[in-house]
Design a protein around this nucleic acid. Sequence first.
RNA 1: GGCGCUAUCGUCUAGAGGCCAAGGACACCAGAUUCUCAUUCUGGGAACCCGGGUUCGACUCCCGGUAGCGUCACCA
Length: 430
Amino acid sequence: MAKQVRVRIAPSPTGFAHVGNAYAALFNYAFVKKNNGTFVLRLEDTDRKRHVEEAEEVLYAGLSWLGFSWDEGPDKGGPYAPYRQSERLERYKERVGQLIKDGLAYEDEGAVRFKNPGQEVSWNDLIHGEIKFPGDQITDFVILKSDGFPTYNFAVVIDDIDMEISHVIRGEEHISNTPRQLALYKAFGVTPPQFSHYSTLRNSEHKKLSKRRDPVDLRLYREQGYLPEALVNFLCLLGWSHPEGKEVFGLEEFIEKFTLERVRKAGPIFDTKKLDWLNGLYIRQMDNVALASTLNKFISADTSAQFLLQVVPIIKERINKLSDVENLLRFFWEKPQIGREMFENEKSVEFISFALEALRGTENWTLESVNEALAQRVKNKGYKTGEFFMCLRLAVTGQKITPPLNESMVILGKEEVLVRLETAQKVFLT
RNA sequence: GGCGCUAUCGUCUAGAGGCCAAGGACACCAGAUUCUCAUUCUGGGAACCCGGGUUCGACUCCCGGUAGCGUCACCA
C-alpha cells in the first residue's frame, strides 16, 4: 500500500495572514486534495520575541476566507497533537537528548549544536529536479537554543517526522535549509519526505514580498473589496498555468488540474493589475441580490436594501473592487457642490432650464417616462445629446463621471432631482 | 564573498529540437457601440539575457558569462 499523503503548512503567527501564507496554502491544499491526503496546519511559534496574541485567530480567519480548510491543527486537534511548536518543547528536548547520547550533538554555551557530518547531500526536488549541496556548506548548527526552545531547522524536522509528513511543499527560501534538515533525518535514521520548493512571490522591485514594506495582509484585500474567489484565482495564475490555458477558474478546478510539474521555477511578481481585472470579472458574474447585500459593507451612508438593489445594475460593470462603489454613488446621499465654473458649455443655463421644465411635467417617475421626457425633445430642440447630458450630469451629481444619468435620476427621485436642478439654475443668476 | 536557485513581451504565462518569422491573458494605444464612465467587440505595438558549443536544425539540450533572487542567525 502506498504511503498516505500528508502535507502541512507551517505558518508562524506573527500578526496577520499574508499573501505568502495563502500562496503556500494554495499549492499544498491543491496537492493534498488531489491526492486524497490529509492537510495539517502546524504553528511555528517558537520565536517568543515575535509572538503576537490573537495572531492565531487572524491567521485562521484569513485562510478560511479564501476557502481553505485543514484536517488537523491547533484549533482542530488530531492524532498528532499538539500542533503548536511551543507546546512540543518536551518532545524536542527528548530528541535532542537522544542525539547527544548518540554522540551526534553537543552542548555549547548553553545551547546544543548538531555535529555536521560534512557529507554532500542531494535530493530530488519535485519542482526543481536534483539539487546538490557540497558537504562543507553545513556547519555545526544550533538545534536547541539556550532558552530551551528548538531552532527552526530542528523543530521542523522533528515535527515532520512525528506528524508523518509525506510531502513538504514550501517556498524556495528553504532550499538552503534543506541540507541541514536532510542531515537530521539521516541522524535519526528516518526516510525524509519528498521536497518541493516553489518560487516565492516578488514585489515590483523583484524582491521577496516583505511583510513590512508590501501590502500583503489579507485583511487589506478583504477591506478593499476583493472577492476571495478572485484572489485565489489570481494566485493560481502565479507560478502555475492551466494545462488548457484557461485564466478564469475556481479552486475546485485548480485542484482537479494541479500538478507540481506545471509549477514554474522562476519567481513571479505579485502585480495586482490582473487581480483587479479578475475581481471585476467576478463581480460582474455575481448575482444581483448577493452583490447588493455584499455592497452594504462598503457604503458609508445608511442605505436601504431596496436602494442597493436598484443601484446594483448600474454600477455592476463599473467597479473592479467593491470599495469603488463609495465614490461612484456618493452623490446619492451627498448634495453636489455646484459652482458656475464647472459648466464649460455656454448653453448650460438653457439646458438646465429646459430639463427642469421637461422633468417637472413628468408624471410617472420611471425610467421610461424620464427617457421620454428628455431624449426625444432634446433632439427636437437640436441640442447635442452629449453636451446636454453632461451639463445635466454636472448639475445633478456634481461629477463628470457617474453611472447612467437617467437611471440615476430615477433612483434619486423626482423631488430631489428638481431641487438639485433649481440649485444649479440659481448659480447662474447671481 | 561562499553555496544554491532562476532567466520568453511592462506584468502573469504557453512553449518539453523542426508545428514559433514565438501563442494567450492583464496593462497600454487606436477604433466601433455609447448621454460621461464602464462593459462589450475589433485592431495594434510589445519578448526568447549574452557568448560559445551539440545538431541538418535550438526559445527549447550542454558549457561559460552576466543579471536577479535566496541563504549562510541561539529568526521562522
